[in-house]
């Protein structure tokens, strides 16, 4: 690697770090601003809030200007201290409140991404470059927003199961009635609906179809085909970074969908906690979840860039003009 390449790589790394930092600070600032703009404050939601107002305003820096509060929180977070929950679990460390739900949400998110990518790849592989009867139903189904799909799924499953139970055809399923009964089905639905709804699947299928069609007609694939070599593994290998980039682009979108699904399906997770914390004005929790989510999205993009660079040597070794 030449000095010039090293400098370019350094500059690229700096750009990525800058983008990463901007995302974190931007998310924190935006969330703080949004919570601040809503009428009332967290103290209003505490039963004995008024008697404790002076003390809590001091402890939570409520009287200070917004930029100062943002800076104080960021400095404290950089030092590893995310503070304590204000209203959801008053006094409990945010890191402790967040640990379990964050892990659960992360797993759901990864499962949904994998499901979406897997199904989209299977469909796109089949339909790329030619007409397919599957394309239309997939697009129609995928157009529905996730909250609507979740409500339909819950109502449909409950109503049909109830009819079957009343008719004596089945015993009461353990998951009945959704979403109040804790069951694996709720998580399963969340993953499937997140992978499918709000155009997540149809968008991915369309983009992958384009990419597959392009790759099938790429000169190196045509050359390989001419040599009688198997081309599918080659196309799939070259599709990996493309798929990763497409998923990374949609990551924030998936995160938003997960918040809604966790709320609708009553799933414990960072999304439902964010929803509750926003309503309860638990600023410490809102900031931690918001910034954590920003970090996940930024890291996802970083990973996708790294994968692209790894899979496509031209990006790191090609001489620049």
């Amino acid at each position: 690697m030449t000095t010039r390449h090293a400098t370019q790589l350094g500059q690229a790394a700096l750009r990525i770090c800058g983008r990463w930092l901007t995302t974190v600070v931007g998310v924190a600032a935006l969330l703080l601003l949004l919570v601040e703009m809503a009428p009332g404050d967290a103290i209003d939601l505490l039963p004995d809030g008024e008697t404790l107002r002076a003390e809590l305003e001091r402890r939570w820096h409520l009287g200070r200007p917004l930029p100062e509060r943002l800076l104080l929180w960021l400095l404290s977070a950089l030092g590893g201290d995310l503070g304590t929950s204000w209203t959801i679990r008053p006094g409990a460390p945010v890191s402790e409140v967040l640990r379990g739900p964050a892990l659960a949400s992360l797993l759901r998110l990864l499962a949904a991404l994998m499901t979406s990518a897997g199904v989209a790849l299977a469909l796109a592989w089949r339909s790329a470059g030619h007409a397919s009867w599957l394309r239309r139903p997939v697009h129609v189904l995928s157009l529905a927003p996730v909250f609507l799909l979740a409500h339909l799924a819950v109502a449909g499953l409950n109503a049909s199961a109830w009819s079957l139970m009343e008719a004596g055809w089945i015993d009461r399923p353990a998951w009945f009635a959704l979403p109040t009964e804790p069951s694996v089905l709720r998580s399963f639905l969340a993953v499937v609906l997140l992978a499918l709804g709000s155009t997540a699947l149809s968008g991915l299928v369309t983009d992958l179809e384009d990419a597959i069609a392009r790759l099938r007609h790429a000169p190196f694939v045509l050359a390989a085909r001419g040599r009688g070599e198997p081309v599918d593994p080659m196309i799939l290998r070259n599709l990996v970074p493309v798929a990763a980039a497409l998923l990374a682009d949609r990551l924030a979108f998936f995160v938003g969908g997960l918040v809604i699904l966790e709320k609708v399906l009553l799933l414990g997770g960072a999304g439902s906690l964010l929803w509750r914390a926003s309503l309860e004005r638990d600023v410490a929790l809102v900031l931690a979840i918001g910034v954590g989510t920003g970090l996940v999205v930024a890291t996802g993009r970083l990973a996708s860039d790294a994968l692209r660079a790894y899979a496509d040597p031209r990006l790191t070794t090609a001489p620049t003009r």
Binding site: G156, L157, A159, S160, A161, L164, W169, I170, D171, R172, P173, A174, W175, F176, L185
Partner: peptide, 16 residues
Amino acid sequence: MLQLVLPLLLSAALAV
């Protein structure tokens, strides 16, 4: 159809 079949597939023992 999906709504009818899924409960059958997913039904489990009745909680006593």
